[in-house]
């Protein structure tokens, strides 16, 4: 409805120009300034870096400028090796092409992030609701959860390896355990801040406890939960690199570890760029999802822009 209001507004200002001949073009026009500022921001940052290199302030061996590490993509891609030579029946020449290897590496890290985030979201939202729904359950679990919440994910790394060895499982577990406690606490905070009038209305109308939770509490906390989910997406990306650095076959964290061991700062920065772009795209996807699910939340409210 807000869109339609905006469109009718532009009809007036557009002096009779038919608006919706190209329905998509309006949206692209609205997006353009944002895209422009993004490029300007990144461009400015790159320029300062290049300038520092040009002036000789930044040692190219330690801080290679963007044109160096982004300049030769094929040779950077050669560092991404996803061939599983240790597997029986796999020849050394069976490796995917370097370009494919980059994509496979990105995909496998993304897969771990997404699966870990999904598990953490489902389990922690369920736990948070259960804590408030059954007060005995809350009394039994909340102190432990609060105690474990500030523990750094790095402390869980050995646990992940003890329990799951190497491969996808420990990385997914790391993402899960890093997000679970804080997301559970965030869910509880959301439940506690539900407008008390909503609850009073439900009580007056004769809603049971279950109905109050499913029909009122859940939709009321959903906007806040999606913001929490988006913030934790970044957390998940941070954790997955730590987990991958320990030996999961391949992944972006493994590449960074390789770069460290072979003293290749260019590769580090190249990988950082890949992570940044992937994380940015996923944040954008979550934002689209958010506006689809939360049709009732006005734009710019409870959505972090």
């Amino acid at each position: 409805m807000q869109q339609s209001a905006a469109e009718s507004g532009s009809v007036e200002s557009g002096a009779g120009v038919p608006v919706s001949r190209f329905p998509g073009s309006e949206r692209i026009k609205k997006l353009l300034p944002g895209i422009g500022w993004t490029f300007l921001s990144v461009g400015l940052f790159t320029l300062i870096w290049e300038f520092a290199w040009f002036m000789g302030w930044a040692d190219p061996k330690l801080l290679p400028p963007p044109h160096v590490f982004m300049g030769d993509l094929p040779s950077q891609a050669k560092n991404f090796n996803t061939a599983q030579r240790w597997q029986i029946g796999t020849g050394t020449s069976d490796a995917p092409s370097p370009g494919m290897a980059v994509l496979i590496t990105i995909f496998s890290s993304t897969y771990r992030v997404m699966l870990g985030l999904l598990c953490a979201a489902v389990v922690s939202i369920a736990t948070g609701i259960a804590i408030r729904y059954w007060s005995l359950f809350g009394k039994l679990t909340l102190p432990t959860i609060t105690l474990l919440a500030p523990v750094s994910p790095i402390a869980w790394l050995p646990v992940a390896i003890f329990l799951f060895g190497i491969g996808d499982a420990p990385a997914i577990f790391m993402v899960f355990i890093a997000l679970f406690f804080t997301m559970t606490l965030a869910t509880i905070t959301q439940i506690d801040s539900v407008n008390v009038n909503y609850l009073n209305v439900a009580r007056t109308m004769g809603a049971s406890k279950l109905q109050t939770y499913t029909r009122v509490v859940l939709p009321a906390i959903l906007p806040g939960l999606l913001v929490v989910l988006r913030l934790n997406l970044f957390g998940a990306w941070m954790v997955v690199l730590i987990a991958e650095a320990t030996g999961v076959g391949y992944g972006l964290g493994q590449v960074i570890m390789l770069a460290r061991n072979t003293f290749n700062p260019g590769l580090v920065f190249f990988t950082i760029v890949l992570i940044g772009i992937t994380g940015f795209l996923f944040d954008y996807a979550l934002r689209l999802l958010q506006s689809k699910i939360l049709y009732w939340v006005p734009k710019g409210q409870g959505s972090l822009g």
């Binding site: 407008n195 009038n197 909503y198 009073n200 209305v201 009580r203 007056t204 109308m205 004769g206 009122v216 939709p219 009321a220 049709y295 009732w296 939340v297």
Partner: peptide, 17 residues
């Protein structure tokens, strides 16, 4: 609480969803 005694609040308490 009972539906026969309905309370109407100062602020709108309609469910926005």
């Amino acid at each position: 609480p009972a539906p026969e005694r309905s309370l109407i609040f100062q602020e709108s308490s309609l469910f926005p969803w």
